[in-house]
Amino acid sequence: LPPSSTMVPPSLPPYFIKGSIIQLADGELKRVEDLKTEDFIQSAEISSELKIDSSTVERIEGSHTSPNFAVVQFSVGEHRTQVSVEVLVEYPFFVFGQGWSSCCPDRTTQLLELPCTKLSVGDVCISLTLKNLR
């Protein structure tokens, strides 16, 4: 097999690297790999501006621009707003009740050491929206 790159791409944020310290809304500090669904829900409840929305994965396909990227189409919130995001295949999303998942979990684990499962159609990811639009 040809050697694969082990560089962390610059567009992959540093806070997904295993061991990164994350501050919850109540001030508690946790490692990124220890975060639970409840941590996000409780933090959003404390937040005055942000709320958690459910984003269901409707489609995953390769990007036309680069093999390192994937296009993930979500159905967001009760209005089922259709949103597509282009991300690196190793970019992790947090799935409700499950944890970190990416299009290519092997690469996520290789690059970030973050325990990760395969993101699949039908998975419900945590996303954020504004609490009130006035």
Binding site: F40, I52, D53, T81, S127, L128, T129
Partner: peptide
């Protein structure tokens, strides 16, 4: 002796994609 290092701390919401604004009814 181990000198204390400053470790970056990231806010929880930076890990969550901000996907779409809530639509008003």
């Amino acid at each position: 002796n181990v000198e204390p290092r400053s470790v970056p701390v990231f806010p929880w919401h930076s890990l969550v994609p901000f996907l779409a604004p809530t639509q008003s009814d």
